[in-house]
Amino acid sequence: MLATSLLNPHKWVDNHADYLYAYAISRISDDEQARDLVQEVFLAALEKADKFEGKSSERTWLTAILKNKIIDIYRKRSSGLNNAVKVAEKEQEDFFYEDGHWREEHWPKELGFEDTDPLHNKEFNQVLQRCMKKLPKLWLAVFTMKHMEDEPTENICTELKVSSANFWVIIHRTKLNLRACLQKNWI
């Protein structure tokens, strides 16, 4: 039987649906999939409602269920043949000379946002999001998991089946491409 004193499913949609939807869409950028996820979260939550002990708030509990489902999606998206990784690696192939020195045409340049507060700059955020979408799915998955909830590195490696050495390579390469994309599209 439902612990109705702790959970109130009659109000779930009113209280949490928009929040969960916004949470999902900012992480998976797919409207339809985000809607499906919200529904799945509620249904899954009903099924395991008896396990809810009230140690966290209803919203925190629902969000945790959602987060696990999002990680599943990352895993699915990033598995299989990954041609995109090769393309992305090629993109940064000529950033550096053999000895590791920057090639002049790829020098990071000041973009004029370093000393101001770009966090509320809408245009810049849009460029950032566009650049993130260009990343290979596996890279984006690693990058997002690291930054969305500050997921421990070991968890990311286990969930996405990447070695710890490869994790660092991905983190590095992701930033090289992301930063270069920002520079290219912002100036």
């Binding site: 928009d18 929040y19 939807y21 949470y23 900012s26 770009p118 966090l119 990058f143 997002t144 930054h147």
Partner: peptide
């Protein structure tokens, strides 16, 4: 700064959110 901005994107949705 990029990391900070990305984290900001994932923060709790604002009123003008989806």
């Amino acid at each position: 700064l990029i990391n900070k901005m990305v984290q900001q994107l994932f923060k709790a949705p604002k009123d003008d959110g989806a």
